[in-house]
């Protein structure tokens, strides 16, 4: 019991630290700057148009 706690708690702390780090990176990277367009973006990329195929071709 004591042993498992002394291992698991540091593990949890490290994981939380990691999560906070990733979140900070995402914010600094501008991923949270415009939440309005992101809400509509999922609708935009859903369907394939000729333009989409063209993009794939060029890549």
């Amino acid at each position: 019991m004591e042993l498992s706690l002394t291992i698991l708690i540091p593990v949890a702390l490290v994981l939380v630290g990691l999560a906070v780090k990733i979140f900070f990176w995402a914010v600094n990277n501008g991923q949270y700057d415009d939440l309005d367009a992101e809400a509509s973006r999922i609708l935009f990329d859903d369907d394939v148009t000729p333009a989409d195929e063209q993009v794939k071709d060029t890549k």
């Binding site: 415009d34 309005d36 367009a37 509509s40 935009f44 333009a51 993009v55 060029t58």
Partner: peptide, 24 residues
């Protein structure tokens, strides 16, 4: 936001464009 979509689509079709993002 439809304009955002249009602008991004138009620009992605262009040669040499790597990344496009428009803030609505």
């Amino acid at each position: 936001t439809a304009c955002v979509w249009l602008i991004e689509k138009v620009l992605r079709d262009q040669q040499g464009v790597v990344e496009v993002s428009v803030h609505s």
